[in-house]
């Protein structure tokens, strides 16, 4: 069973996605801000990470660069953000993000993208 880390500062969104991904059959851990997320990433290995960009104490982009710069790390990262600016999207991909979804988004679509990424890795 794949293990997913979900980073999102909106509590309701976090809960809803957690329930939904659990229902899809994954193990889900959550972090409400960048600091908790960084700690979790340091001590755990995840099969996939979903992160927002505008979160307290760190940017989602910092999280991507941290995960991707670790030697031998192949954990895929999906960005899920309200920021859809061209420059931000490009920067995210440059840092190594595997997918980028802009809010408002379709939950079923996220679910499919998660499944696809987990299969290909």
């Amino acid at each position: 069973m794949a293990k997913i880390l979900l980073i999102e500062d909106d509590q309701l969104m976090l809960k809803a996605l957690e329930f939904r991904l659990k229902k899809d059959g994954y193990t889900v851990e959550t972090a409400p801000d960048g600091r908790v997320a960084m700690q979790l990433i340091d001590t755990n290995i995840y099969d996939l990470i979903i992160t927002d960009i505008m979160i307290p104490f760190a940017s989602g982009l910092e999280i991507v660069s941290k995960v991707k710069s670790r030697p031998g790390n192949t954990t895929p990262v999906i960005i899920l953000s309200g920021v859809g600016l061209e420059s931000t999207v490009l920067e995210a991909f440059k840092l190594g993000a595997d997918d980028y979804m802009t809010k408002p988004f379709i939950i079923n679509e996220l679910s499919v993208r998660v499944r696809k990424l987990l299969k290909s890795f």
Binding site: D10, L12, A16, P104, F105, I107
Partner: peptide
């Protein structure tokens, strides 16, 4: 209020 906030973030069927 909460419904409004989450509704803004979502699209498709859920919205």
């Amino acid at each position: 209020q909460e419904l409004l906030l989450i509704h803004q973030e979502l699209a498709g069927n859920t919205a």
